[in-house]
């Protein structure tokens, strides 16, 4: 399981982020990108010593300032569901393309009998 795909699945969940400077943020994950930059909503920022708290309605964190992120365990279940759904979609798609395609020669199919892919580009022949 890739760390970033787990984080992606945690979208909408409450998470805890600790930054390299020791501050922590308890917030709801709104969105994230490949660099672990994140936008959060409804955050509570805790100071380094744990004595001060601020409420921050919306914020953006640059990924490289993060030390670690804690996510609820139920996100692992979400990851599994998403994986199963993706496999199902892939199976459906391959069934559709292999079964019941009795077209005349040519008919939009290439010589492999499948969809056009990179190998059919002139450069690859």
């Amino acid at each position: 399981m890739l760390p970033l795909s787990l984080l992606k699945s945690a979208t909408g969940c409450p998470i805890l982020i600790e930054l390299k400077n020791g501050e922590t943020y308890n917030a709801k994950l709104h969105s994230m990108d490949l660099w672990m930059n994140m936008s959060l909503t409804d955050a509570v920022r805790t100071s380094r010593d744990g004595n001060d708290f601020w409420h921050v309605p919306q914020l953006y964190i640059r990924g490289n300032t993060i030390k670690y992120i804690r996510v609820p365990e139920l996100v692992l279940g979400i990851v599994e569901e998403e994986r199963a759904a993706r496999q199902q979609r892939r199976a459906d798609r391959s069934n559709r393309s292999s079964g019941g395609s009795r077209r005349s020669a040519g008919g939009g199919r290439n010589r492999h009998g499948g969809r056009r892919d990179r190998r059919d580009h002139p450069q690859w022949q």
């Binding site: 984080l7 030390k67 670690y68 804690r70 996510v71 609820p72 996100v75």
Partner: peptide, 14 residues
Amino acid sequence: SSDSLNTFIIRGDD
């Protein structure tokens, strides 16, 4: 340990 937030994503830098 924590009951609710016990799955960690640790950034490689750290």
